[in-house]
Design a protein around this nucleic acid. Sequence first.
DNA 1: CAGGATCCTATCAGATACTG
DNA 2: CAGTATCTGATAGGATCCTG
Lengths: 130, 130
Amino acid sequence: MYVASILNMAQSHKILNSHPYLRQTLDLVSDKWVTAIIYVLSQGTKRYGELHREIGDVSQRMLTRTLRDLERDGLVKRKVYPTNPPTVEYSLTSLGETLVEPLRLLCQWSINHFHEVETARESKDNHIDR
Amino acid sequence: MYVASILNMAQSHKILNSHPYLRQTLDLVSDKWVTAIIYVLSQGTKRYGELHREIGDVSQRMLTRTLRDLERDGLVKRKVYPTNPPTVEYSLTSLGETLVEPLRLLCQWSINHFHEVETARESKDNHIDR
DNA sequence: CAGGATCCTATCAGATACTG
DNA sequence: CAGTATCTGATAGGATCCTG
């Protein structure tokens, strides 16, 4: 059934080539820090420091760079308050919000199935059958 | 509303750290060639050469390596027929099939929204407002 | 046909230091 | 606080040659 539905989306099996933007937009999403940032921002507006602390293992460089990319792509809004020291708030745009649900499903898949993946890995590591 | 549903999944905002396997499994999915291969295999069993041709811009090295990873993780089944020259068929396992739908939604998102992303990029490239 | 083995390099991304 | 700038090691991944 999955097969049928995904085929409806792509009459041609060459969709990956015939639809150049698909690849480009998927790359956007297939990023470690993108998923983390969207995830945290789905909880609401956050300041730079909050994002940094909640994601945890992200470097300053990567956090800033990814935020700039997301802002440029219209997924994240950056608001600067001219205080001293500066205050910067990040939040999802309405476009960014539309990405939350698909990403959530992917996270859900990971949580539901990681154990099966683990099991598959172990069984192949311990004995080579084939 | 998205906010509420994603929060149900994570009582703590530290889920990215507290759930080590989530990150690991998401990385598995967040791979250019993984998405392409799952995508093509969702259409049914394919031979190595078919995969190579249909994905198109993948190198031999990367195709083989990714297929091995997917096999190891239990998402893809590799079947060898002792013919000459050899025949090898790849197909999704039942676990692999469960990933098709989440990935399809992500592809659908890309198709539905890539134009908005494009527009956002262009408007920011042409004039710096803020 | 379906890869395995090597070589090589562009990009990624962490660590560190500095600033308005 | 919220970044920018620079350096550098790691690694992803392409090109090429070879084989059962």
